[in-house]
């Protein structure tokens, strides 16, 4: 990985999708893509692996449910048993609502904070806008100029097929 990247911007999402697919098939390394809104199918075109966030969510949810069930059982029937309405101390039905809420809470918070962590987002972080018009009307593809063999003029010619509007080089 070099520190030079090629930014290619497009006017239409279809052009971006087609270019992304073609660039990936050519074997060039796609670093990222910036779009004004979520473009369906872009993750597939970029060849991204399925998100691992689902596993974080599942594990957090199970931790919440099982942890809370254990905690309720421990408090209500082991350390300080309380008779509620003559029910047995270890009454599973009364534990379910709180366990459910804890599962939802942990799964939700866990996913959001895991996403923040992975995307390196935190309060007060200075935004690094790679290409301002990507927040407005342009669709931008960031390609890694991997080595000396990467020829920028020929890459630009290749991208012309996909109606590229502007290309520029950047150092990271």
């Amino acid at each position: 990985m070099s520190d030079r990247v090629l930014l290619a911007s497009f006017d239409h999402e279809d052009d971006l999708l087609a270019a992304t697919e073609a660039v990936r098939q050519k074997g060039w390394r796609i670093l990222d893509a910036f779009t004004p809104y979520a473009v369906h199918g872009l993750d597939h075109a970029m060849g991204l692996k399925p998100s691992r966030l689902t596993w974080v969510c599942f594990i957090c949810g199970m931790t919440g449910a099982l942890g809370m069930l254990w905690f309720e059982h421990w408090t209500a029937s082991i350390t300080w048993p309380i008779d509620v309405g003559g029910k047995p101390w270890n009454s599973l039905p009364s534990d379910v609502p709180v366990a459910f809420e804890a599962a939802v809470l942990l799964a939700g918070f866990g996913s959001v904070f895991a996403l923040f962590g992975v995307s390196r987002l935190w309060p007060g972080k200075k935004p690094k806008v790679v290409y301002p018009r990507a927040t407005d009307d342009r669709f931008v593809l960031v390609i890694d100029e991997a080595d000396a063999a990467f020829d920028v003029p020929s890459a630009e010619r290749f991208l012309q097929e996909f109606n590229v509007v502007e290309t520029m080089e950047r150092t990271q």
Partner: peptide
């Protein structure tokens, strides 16, 4: 299903 069951189980 559980909401129906739990309310009935609780109030008994």
């Amino acid at each position: 299903w559980f909401s129906q069951y739990m309310l009935i189980w609780y109030s008994n």
